[in-house]
Write a protein that binds this DNA or RNA. Structure first.
Lengths: 245, 245
DNA sequence: AAACAGCTACTTGTCAGGCAACTTGGTTAT
DNA sequence: ATAACCAAGTTGCCTGACAAGTAGCTGTTT
């Protein structure tokens, strides 16, 4: 009930931000590299040459090349030039899921999310501490309380899974599943805003959560994995996402 | 003219590239955002203000902010300003493993790699086509041939796993495991260049590969997962990486 | 003839200043 | 009161210039 309507929302940028020159140039250069026209180890044209070739100014070229450097695709040395990096030497992994419109890509994302979450749940079951278990239990109870209040409890749902992932102590698990989960939820929210239908299913979800919790409490990794996988598959089905086992 | 003096290797950049001003500024801004000093949805200072605050020129500020935009942390509108993005709205996931010196981080990476590879192997076993199986078989045979030639067959090893991953048809599995695998191998190569010791173990590795292949051929997902996990755990042990099950 | 030192042209890194496109909020006119 | 208008501010982009560093050429020396 925030009546704060006068604030113009700063971001109507749902989709429509026009790509800057540097954006498009960076894309083109990326293409040139991945297509092999600029081979690994080779020196790429000087900034002035690039500027002339693509009809932009040198600062724009610098910005575009800077992004490639940031992404580990090229590395430059002052006075010498910029060289495209060996693919194996890059230390950065980049994943841009801006354009997932087709269900195919969504399915791939969900697959990866399932792999990460199921593995994390398995690991937590194998190595959890008592403190970890207590935290997870707290989140489980919070979810139950939300249901009793008649709420869908999505935040509590997320928090429960987050607690399990955190218990692995592996930041990569945390960051990746965090990102993927948000992407999937974001997609679902924009695709169909019928979260009301989910409210009735909250207790069903909670039942699956309890199965996961029990497996973790029992230190049974295999059961934990299976419970997590079942939960995720059901979640996918609930959302009418086609996903064949 | 004197015959040219032979190409100086363009990249002695093993470690030592000095960070540019834009690099360091981007890092600082990233900190400001993640630490919450620049809150989500807020407008961050103008480029001129930032330039003055951090003692650099506006182009440098532009370059730094441009990277944040590229990473989905901020979004800007001409005439309005630059706003830090809602964390959930970002469409890009970025992973930079430049500084993994401690074994802790290596273990985390290996854990993630195992999660991805094992899941991919399981999925391939569940859904492979006959063509997929044939390709995998070819790679398996190539590995065997390499062993007979007395070679360690690392390339063939990689190709075998790659074929299994590709059979999932999921590009995220492919890209992620590709990256992680390279990072791990790269680390091992720099840490201890005793690949000679591995040659003798090639046949052992091959035995594990055959187990994986058999499970895929039999369309037995669970067995495939377990075989893959065993293989990866053994690989970790072989390399004397501490990794408790 | 070969090795060394120095020099010059070139390339990236950074800065300064300026104009165009666009947004925003206040002002003026109706 | 409402709508059109305007001006200040901000980002996007450009030109031009200098500093820092590299690589190859040249001439000298051994």
């Amino acid at each position: 009930m925030v009546a704060d309507k006068r604030r113009s929302e700063p971001s109507p940028n749902v989709i429509g931000r026009a790509p800057s020159l540097a954006d498009t140039l960076a894309l083109r250069l990326r293409d040139e590299i991945s297509s092999g026209r600029f081979k690994a180890g080779e020196r790429l044209p000087t900034e002035q040459q690039l500027a002339q070739t693509y009809g932009v100014s040198r600062p724009i070229v610098r910005e575009a090349v800077g992004r490639l450097k940031h992404d580990g695709l090229v590395s430059s040395r002052q006075g010498a030039g910029a060289f495209v990096a060996e693919p194996g030497a890059s230390t950065v992994f980049r994943l841009d899921i801006a354009n997932f419109s087709d269900k195919e890509e969504l399915r791939h994302i969900v697959e990866l999310l399932m792999a990460v979450e199921a593995s994390a749940t398995e690991r937590t079951a194998a190595r959890r501490s008592e403190a970890d278990l207590a935290t997870i239990r707290t989140r489980l109870d919070a979810m139950q309380a939300a249901i009793h209040r008649g709420e869908p409890g999505v935040d509590e749902d997320v928090a429960f899974h987050r607690a399990i992932i955190d218990a692995t102590g592996n930041p990569f698990f945390r960051d990746l599943s965090d990102f993927l989960d948000r992407r999937v939820r974001n997609f679902i929210r924009t695709a169909r805003a019928n979260s009301a239908r989910l409210t009735g299913m909250a207790q069903t979800v909670q039942g699956e959560h309890e199965a996961i919790f029990e497996a973790i409490a029992a230190r049974d990794p295999q059961a934990a994995r299976m419970a997590a996988e079942t939960h995720l598959k059901n979640a996918a089905k609930r959302l009418a996402i086609y996903l064949e086992s």
